[in-house]
């Protein structure tokens, strides 16, 4: 009797655990794991709209990488992603580090500034994109400001010129997201043991040597996070250029990036082409593979320069 009731209790416990775990696993399987696995499978078939055609091996990959005009579109978009990544890394995250240090030193009103730097982060990229699109308009706020301070020669159609469009987008993106790396760096700085900083100050270290010898090396974990998130974000960049420059990355492909190019290839754009799920999936697999390999490599490399304390 005792054993059968124990068996029943064990059975009940198993059922209870299964009931707790199963719904989450089912949702993840349906919405995440099956689609990801399917994306790999889709890329080696020919597609006719929603209909799967013949198995074509790696032909879709060869097409998007090497056959024209896809090859040069791919490289043009990829090159822009690299520019976006490097610029954001240096300009946005460099400024974010400075802002974080300023907040860390707790001048008067630092709590208020901490809240304001994060305001644009919580807004939808659609709102931020449209707002800056209006500001960059030839008659918009940016040019009104430039004229007001006498820089009429700089009052150009920022989003209309191939030379300035990508930079204008990156600036709007920086305005949108700078609060995020700032607060990650700030949290990293607040984790540094106080004694280290006090001791350095006691020894007469100025701001520069304090930053260089103590703070920068000890916020290495924050740098790793910021670097890797910026990398992933830059190569998945879609909403901002879609809203501000349109699906074709206008003007003349000057703002085309892999996200837009992937979307156009998969679903087509209104004006010209129809979508192609085979080529789109091949692009998705390539982008995913590249980001995964690079992000893992960066993480492993950057982890090595983190110091335990």
């Amino acid at each position: 009797m005792a054993t059968s009731s124990m068996r029943r209790a064990r059975m009940m416990r198993r059922l209870w655990i299964a009931a707790l775990v199963a719904p989450g696993l089912l949702v993840m399987t349906f919405f995440v794991f099956v689609p990801i696995a399917s994306a790999l499978a889709y890329s080696v078939f020919e597609w006719e709209g929603l209909q799967r055609g013949a198995f074509v091996g790696l032909a879709n990959f060869a097409t998007v990488l090497f056959s024209e005009p896809y090859g040069s579109w791919t490289w043009n978009a990829f090159r822009h992603n690299v520019i976006v990544f490097v610029t954001i890394m240096v300009v946005q995250n460099g400024t974010a580090f400075l802002l974080a240090y300023a907040l860390f030193c707790q001048p008067w009103g630092h709590r208020f500034h901490q809240v304001t730097v994060f305001v644009p982060v919580i807004l939808s990229t659609v709102i931020v994109g449209f707002l800056w699109k209006l500001f960059y308009n030839p008659f918009g706020l940016v040019n009104q400001l430039l004229r007001a301070i006498g820089l009429d020669s700089l009052a150009i159609p920022w989003l209309g010129e191939p030379t300035t469009a990508l930079g204008a987008l990156i600036f709007a993106n920086t305005w949108h997201f700078i609060g995020f790396p700032t607060l990650i760096y700030l949290a990293g700085m607040q984790r540094i043991p106080r004694d280290l900083i006090d001791a350095a100050r006691m020894d007469g270290a100025g701001n520069w040597s304090l930053i260089r010898r103590i703070i920068w090396p000890l916020v290495a974990p924050a740098t790793t996070v910021v670097f890797v998130l910026t990398f992933i974000g830059s190569f998945n960049w879609f909403e901002m250029p879609f809203i501000m420059a349109g699906l074709d990355g206008s003007p003349f492909g000057a703002t085309d990036v892999l996200g837009l190019y992937f979307y156009r290839t998969a679903f087509g754009n209104q004006s010209s082409s129809l979508g192609d799920f085979g080529l789109g999936s091949a692009l998705a697999v390539l982008i995913f593979g590249f980001v995964l390999v690079m992000a893992t490599a960066w993480t492993l490399y950057l982890r090595r320069r983190e110091i335990e304390f």
Partner: peptide
């Protein structure tokens, strides 16, 4: 406590940076 004893001029510049940034964040809104 603030991070160590900062010189008045350093604190002034950091403060100016934060105020400038807050204006940049809030003015478009």
């Amino acid at each position: 406590q603030p991070a160590g004893r900062l010189g008045g001029s350093t604190l002034f510049w950091l403060q100016a940076l934060l105020i400038f940034n807050t204006v940049l964040m809030l003015y478009p809104i």
